[in-house]
């Protein structure tokens, strides 16, 4: 069980949260300047390291905030929880 330190509610069990997928890189500012291949890459290819990833978690059974969590995919160690992206 992960314990995520919600900025509003303090440390809470993973079971209070819903997983929202990998945190995507920011949407390209000028869409028309991006090639088709880069769009597909942005949309479908998440980082998949044996290391830290950033992912979105929703404090569904708590304050309702969408958080961004930095977590290690091998140790599950959570090194950062922040509000928003």
């Amino acid at each position: 069980m992960l314990v995520l330190d919600c900025p509003f509610c303090g440390p809470r069990n993973e079971s209070e949260f819903a997983y929202g997928g990998p945190a995507l890189a920011p949407r390209p500012a000028d869409p028309s300047a991006v090639s088709d291949a880069d769009w597909v890459d942005w949309l479908t290819v998440p980082p998949n390291p044996m290391g830290e990833v950033e992912e979105r978690w929703w404090h569904l059974r708590g304050c309702g905030a969408w958080l961004t969590v930095r977590r290690h995919t091998v140790t599950h160690a959570v090194t950062e929880v922040r509000l928003g992206r």
């Binding site: 069980m1 998440p46 990833v53 995919t73």
Partner: peptide, 12 residues
């Protein structure tokens, strides 16, 4: 939930 390279199972 989330990406994982572990091969154990989570208690929850």
């Amino acid at each position: 939930l989330g990406q994982s390279f572990r091969r154990d199972i989570k208690q929850s």
